[in-house]
Design a protein around this nucleic acid. Structure first.
Lengths: 211, 211
DNA sequence: AGCAATTTTAAACAAGCGTTTAAAACAGAG
DNA sequence: CTCTGTTTTAAACGCTTGTTTAAAATTGCT
């Protein structure tokens, strides 16, 4: 740990850790302060309130979460390769920060949650032109003609659920943390094969994807 | 609403609604009491504490959640039909109770959550022999040879995520509640085609699944 | 009716919450 | 060192939390 970071950064780092692990209503201001090694009042000195701090942490997590997505979509690779890269990057990101999808989805789902305007964030995705690219590939007969929303659902489901539902799966199949980690590595390959095979039925590389 | 239900049942029903919508730490005892139309003390008169009540609600939700799964697996249909039935039943269940997977997964994931022993519940799944059946089909060459855990992951990911992540998807694609509901109907079909096609590559009915 | 047990309520409890206050510790400039 | 503004702290604020108490209302029984 770097100890030369500013007080403000130390609070943000502690808040990130605690908020993501426990959610907004699952933790207290004092808990965050203690994790940062300081007084409660200092947290409110730098950030006005628990809600204000949460908003900052949430938006940062959202940003991190979409970053890898964006710079894959902004490359000029063929769509099928973009999809492979996306799956690669997403699994790498989620292996590093496995709690983020749960965090985002929960806090977005809560009716009385801290309200945050995400429209700008999501417009970034649309702005990459990835959706239009799919439509073009579909019209050209190279991609299966299914709804764009369903494509998003397929991608997100098969990337994020294995991390969100880790606790359940580990219990169902009596797996240790290390075993599940290995499982995820091979599951990424399965998901890639399945999705590529389904979305690009004619693709020559459907069956022979290797690690 | 039936008004002739007992006080105990009224509390349980209110608690179910509130706990599932907001989570354990996202709501208060008084909130549950008010939802049931009564005093706080009465909640603790019937159930000893908030935690004890939560435990009951959680285990009931867990039971409901696994019920449809179990009696599909306990039929004597061919595996591929079981899988189709499972997807059908699971989407029907989740359409009715869309918040349950988030609820279960969150509360299981929280480190400091109310501790509950689920081993018995999960042994029920194993006891149906569904896993052995998969292994037999794989040995017979009728099913793709992938890990049982990955099969579970594929099924759960593609069933549960579309409901858990509804808020995110709706925002990304700017969909109304009704639009997303329709989306889910057609997504179920896509998921069925994709999973059957992937898991049973030789199946004659891969491409012609109808509603 | 009257009595005992059960059910419901209002009120209070200590503990913890988010937030604020006012004073202490610290820093840099003169 | 002194004076300034900034950073940090301890303590307190009012409020809500989960839980308990003790009295009131209700029920069932004889």
């Amino acid at each position: 740990m770097k100890t030369d970071s500013t007080t403000e950064d130390k609070i943000k780092e502690a808040a990130k850790q605690v908020f993501i692990a426990k959610g907004f209503s699952g933790c207290t201001s004092r808990e965050i302060a203690k994790a940062a090694g300081m007084n409660v009042a200092l947290v409110n000195y730098y950030f006005r309130s628990k809600s204000a701090l949460f908003k900052i942490i949430f938006e940062a997590a959202m940003g991190d979460f979409l970053l890898s997505m964006l710079d894959v979509f902004n490359t000029s690779l063929p769509l099928e390769d973009k999809l492979r890269n996306y799956l690669d990057r997403e699994y790498a990101f989620l292996t590093k920060y496995p709690e983020i999808p749960s965090f985002i989805i929960n806090e977005m789902g809560r009716k009385e949650g801290v309200h945050i305007d995400n429209t700008a964030v999501f417009q970034c995705i649309e702005h990459t032109g990835i959706f239009e690219e799919c439509l073009m590939e579909q019209k050209a007969g190279r991609m299966r003609e299914i709804d764009i929303t369903s494509i998003t659902l397929l991608m997100m489901s098969n990337c994020q659920f294995p991390f969100m539902g880790a606790a359940v799966i580990k219990q169902v199949h009596a797996l240790s943390d290390e075993q599940y980690e290995k499982q995820l590595v091979q599951h990424k390959q399965i998901v890639t094969d399945m999705l590529i095979g389904y979305l690009f039925p004619e693709s020559k590389s459907t069956q022979i994807t290797q690690k």
